[in-house]
């Protein structure tokens, strides 16, 4: 069996080789009048595309990008941006909103139990922590909306307000996107500095996850300053925040770090992480405001009820109370030094 097929392949190869060798000169080397064909050794599109995915050469313009002749990858990037991205983004964000709504209407708000109100307050986030959170948060909301405008603006908003108003709005959205990116990046760095200490995963988190954050079973799981869920949010913000910053910086300085295909990939990564980031932060906003009674105070006034804290962050409260009254337990209105 093996022998004949091997022979057959050889014969085929020989035939192909012979036919190429026979037909090529007759075809290519001489023009109809017998003159030598000057293109016999010349480049052509098919040949160059077989060698590399883009065709480039040399230009006398001091702009390296101009040396690219054809980059068909633009078509693929367009497919991603126009066919895939709106669906991925729409499904991620609307899916998250639907999931949160479903949760809200079936399970309702996580209520404060009567035993969680003692009247005594405990400082949870100091002024600098709240400042960092809100600076990053406001920037994120503007960045998110102006980012979504690049994808959905022309589909949803433009038919409503007309092209001129939409173009003016998009121009300002673009200014906001590229300039508010800087306080956002600073905020992510600040967050890393002030909260990384309390967000190192440990064995308590495993137990917290095993008990489903208190949903499974009737015992509230132990938690330090941040529970496993909050740690996930923290590391998600740090990871995505740095990824968005890195890809965003590459796009702010176009072609400084990479070529055209690199720019396309970087834009795709930025957009994909962006929509997932927005969806995840929607869940964070929900649980911090509507989803759980009493949770907002931590970032609003900075102070939480001692009893609430004892239920949700028992180990942290124990540690804080051990630091004596001169420590974090401050009266209302007092903002501690960072």
């Amino acid at each position: 069996m093996r022998q004949p097929s091997h022979l057959g392949t050889l014969a085929m190869a020989a035939l192909v080789w012979a036919s190429v060798g026979l037909t090529q000169p007759a075809h290519a080397v001489n023009a109809p009048d017998g003159a030598p064909n000057p293109t016999a050794s010349s480049v052509n599109e098919d040949l160059l595309f077989r060698q590399a995915p883009t065709i480039g050469g040399r230009v006398s313009i001091p702009d390296a990008k101009a040396a690219n002749l054809i980059q068909p990858q633009g078509r693929e990037w367009r497919d991603f941006r126009e066919s895939w991205l709106p669906w991925i983004g729409g499904l991620a964000i609307l899916g998250m909103i639907a999931a949160l709504a479903l949760f809200y209407f079936t399970r309702g708000r996580i209520r404060l139990e009567h035993s969680e109100e003692s009247g005594r307050k405990l400082l949870r986030f100091n002024g600098f922590e709240r400042f960092t959170h809100w600076m990053t948060a406001t920037c994120f909301i503007v960045l998110g909306l102006s980012g979504l405008n690049y994808i959905f603006g022309k589909r949803l908003l433009m038919p409503l307000i007309g092209p001129d108003a939409f173009a003016a709005l998009s121009q300002w959205a673009k200014y906001a996107h590229v300039y508010l990116a800087w306080p956002f990046m600073l905020g992510v760095v600040f967050m890393l500095v002030v909260w990384v200490r309390d967000n190192i995963p440990n064995r308590i988190d495993v137990q917290w996850i095993r008990q489903g954050g208190g949903f499974l079973g009737d015992q509230h799981p132990h938690a330090e300053r941040f529970n496993a869920g909050q740690k996930v949010v923290f590391w998600m913000v740090i990871g995505f925040g740095f990824a968005m910053s890195a890809t965003g910086l590459v796009m702010l300085f176009p072609f400084a770090a990479t070529d055209i295909n690199g720019m396309q990939i970087v834009q795709g990564v930025h957009a994909l992480i962006g929509v997932v980031f927005i969806a995840a932060i929607l869940a964070h906003i929900y649980i911090g405001s509507l989803g759980m009674e009493g949770a907002y105070d931590a970032m609003g006034s900075g102070e939480v009820d001692l009893a609430w804290a004892k239920v949700h962050h028992d180990l942290w409260v124990k540690e804080q109370l051990a630091k004596t009254a001169s420590g974090p337990q401050l009266g209302r209105g007092q903002v501690p030094a960072e």
Binding site: F131, T132, H133, T138, A176, L180, W182
Partner: peptide, 15 residues
């Protein structure tokens, strides 16, 4: 509220 206002102002100033 104060932290929030300062944060927004800082964001705008940095931008």
């Amino acid at each position: 509220m104060k932290a929030f206002a300062v944060a927004v102002l800082a964001a705008v100033a940095l931008a």
